[in-house]
Amino acid sequence: MYVAVKGGEKAIDNAHAWLAEERRGDNSIAELSVAQIREQLALAVNRVMAEGSLYDPDLAALAIKQSRGDLIEAIFLIRAYRTTLPRFGGSEPVETDRMACDRRISATFKDAPGGQVLGPTFDYTHRLLDFKLAADGEVPEAAMATSDRIQTPHIMSFLDREGLVQDEPEGAEAPPDLTREPLELPAERALRLQSLTRGDEGFILGMAYSTQRGYARNHAFVAELRIGTVEVEMEVPELGFAIEIGEITLTECETVNQFKGSKTEPPQFTRGYGLVFGQTERKAISMALVDRALRWEELGEDDTGAPAQDAEFVLYHADNIQATGFLEHIKLPHYVDFQSELELIRRLRREAGAAVAEAAE
């Protein structure tokens, strides 16, 4: 039986109080600070910043604490807060070839120019629970200090010298801003990349995985994956030139794919691209694979009907905030709609019963 929820505003206030109590947990255990979340749950913080489109580790950590670790709820909080911020202008495009790399690897060249830098990664761990962490033991410092980070050119630039990679013409105009304008199709590549970098990591991962398993035939090589800090510059009108206003950490991935050529293009490599806030390499690689799959039309390739090639399907379903809102709205009262459906089913059953009885006579 469906009945109206009683209590109104008082019930909602009590629900909020109960939520705050559950969020705090056992009072005999020390409260988790925002600084602890920022420093020790950095990968969760990075995801919230990336999909929330706001680079602020402290606010992302606060959102994670407020949401009890529900990252999609934290992303929602960050996006909502972002809309309240004043906009003073736009920064210059960041120069990722000047990135101070903490991690830089290539799956295409063993002796990559500038060297391979393994950096902080789970790739070489044994995936065994480390019970030393439960004892709050100290961790030894890494042998490579932050000041020793290197700046290296992109590996793709070495392929470019031989003309083996498709040219990527620079856009004549600034791309549209997805945080200020709604997504419209057909979407140019710059807009697709914005949508992918804000998209849900799990969804983008699933789409990327599907391309590797044959849905879009996207068997890529990671030309380069790099993680590090870049300078952010902004042009000040009063000065007439750009000045550095800060640094951010980014993950960048470039993949190479075979392209058999066309009537106007020789056989060459094409590229997929991913760029995400923080150390978010799974998302960056996934993004690069999906980016390449979505380029089938501009490259004159066949549409295999794969989901990852369908821009409307990918871009309209990648955003976890929109998906969550539409999904969770069915929790809200739908009494009138349901009663109409209930009455319809009852009437149909009565009519069907009467028809059976009439046929039996």
Rank of each mutant, 00 (worst) to 15 (best):
R161L: 13
A174C: 00
D136H: 06
A35F: 03
T146M: 11
L196T: 15
E252T: 15
H154M: 07
M287L: 09
A63P: 02
G90C: 05
D167Q: 13
D13E: 12
F259P: 06
G171L: 09
E170F: 14
D310G: 04
E231Q: 12
K132A: 12
E22H: 11
G90V: 10
D70K: 10
G52L: 04
E22R: 05
M144S: 04
G199L: 01
A44M: 08
N257E: 15
Q151F: 01
R68D: 02
L164V: 09
A50K: 03
E351H: 01
P186C: 13
A135R: 07
Q151I: 14
V94L: 14
Q194P: 10
L59A: 08
Q322M: 08
K331W: 02
T146S: 14
I150G: 01
V45G: 08
D58S: 07
H126K: 09
G278E: 00
P182I: 03
F313P: 00
K263H: 14
D26C: 00
S210Q: 12
A42L: 12
E301K: 15
V222P: 00
T121H: 02
R24M: 06
E188F: 01
A172R: 07
F109P: 01
I243K: 14
A15M: 04
S28R: 13
V236T: 03
A17R: 12
A284G: 13
R82S: 12
R271N: 03
G274R: 04
P153H: 12
G353P: 08
E341V: 06
A216S: 10
R127W: 08
M156S: 09
E168A: 07
E281A: 11
D319Y: 04
M156Y: 00
K132T: 11
E341P: 00
M144F: 02
G274E: 00
Q322C: 03
M49E: 15
G52F: 01
A284N: 07
V48T: 04
F203D: 05
G114N: 05
K65I: 06
S53Y: 05
L193D: 09
I12E: 09
H334E: 01
E328C: 06
G272E: 06
I12P: 00
G8F: 07
Y316V: 05
A216N: 09
E224K: 06
G8P: 02
A60D: 08
L164Q: 05
V230M: 07
D136T: 00
E233L: 11
G89S: 06
F122L: 14
V45Q: 13
T251A: 08
P169R: 04
D302E: 13
T152R: 12
R282E: 07
T125H: 09
T304P: 03
L54N: 10
T211C: 15
P169K: 08
T249W: 05
D102C: 00
L178C: 01
T146E: 15
K132I: 01
I321Q: 09
D319T: 06
T304Y: 13
Q116G: 03
A42D: 13
Y55I: 11
G7I: 10
F259M: 02
L159H: 10
A223N: 14
D111A: 10
T108S: 09
T229V: 06
D58C: 02
A284F: 06
G171N: 15
A293D: 05
A100Q: 10
